[in-house]
Amino acid sequence: MLAAVVGLLIVEIATRTGISMAYIGGVFVAAAVLISPVAPLGGVAGLIIHDVFHGIIGYWTVSTTVWILSFAWVIVWLTNGHSSGQKRQGLKSMLRMAPAYAAVILIGGINATAFAAWLVMVLGAQRFYTAAIGFLPGVVAAVGLSVFGLVAIGIIERLGKHIGRADTRGHTLIESEVPGRKPSKESTGVMAVGVLVIGAGWLFGVSVLDVFVHDLGLYPTANEFSAFVTGFLGRGSPIAPVVTTALLGVYKYGELAVVLSAPVAIAALFGWHTYHDQMLLSTAHGIGSICTRASDD
């Protein structure tokens, strides 16, 4: 309730001062890391109350809400493995943890931005790449605030230890512990790298594709575009027909590929989450058998 009120106030101030909602979303996500994993829920509630109160519910409400929640969810998803069983151990451990948390927040931001940009596009408001550009400053804000906050907390706790006071803060992501679930650090790290690769490929790959498809739209028909490509490449080159066919494919099906990017990326994320151990084991087993054969020969 208190988080919702604070969220409402922050959103109201942001709209009156013209601060981008991406930055405010970044603040809510940083609150998930520093205060509580449920803090973004209060922020989102404040955002929705603000828009309902002013009668301005629109695609911006839906997309910003989804962006904040998916951003926080990916961080919680990844940090449950990273930090389970870990307790804060003063400035030294905070300084060690800060880069890891920055990486996790970056991964969450990339995936959440791709998903929210896709949603904005599907709702018919903006193109994928313009929506992504709008959200990315919020990712930077979330990373910066979280790292700053982690270091600040570390310094405060160290001072507290010197003074001898007990810690009275709440249960944060940093010290969260999931009973009975302690995946290895290596496995979690590998999974995070996979999520980063999938998310980065989704966000940046689809953004580039969207820009390209958008520019191809300057040619009103496929025939005109084909004539341009043929004229540009010439007919004598052996690769010209292949390149022309590929570019015509992008012209015709590029928009569809951008639309289908989210289902494909989400399936890849869950596939990686579920089967990454088996994939790594089978890869290691394959490499091991190849090495054994080579040594036998």
């Binding site: 013209g18 408001a125 903006q126 790449y129 709008g134 739209g217 300057l218």
Partner: peptide, 25 residues
């Protein structure tokens, strides 16, 4: 200046004009 920000945040300044495109286009 804020009006320009509105157009930018809608993505209007970075798209080609398209009659049947997204809201920004």
């Amino acid at each position: 200046g804020r009006r320009r920000q509105v157009l930018q945040s809608m993505g209007v300044t970075t798209v080609h004009p398209t009659a049947d495109g997204t809201t920004a286009e």
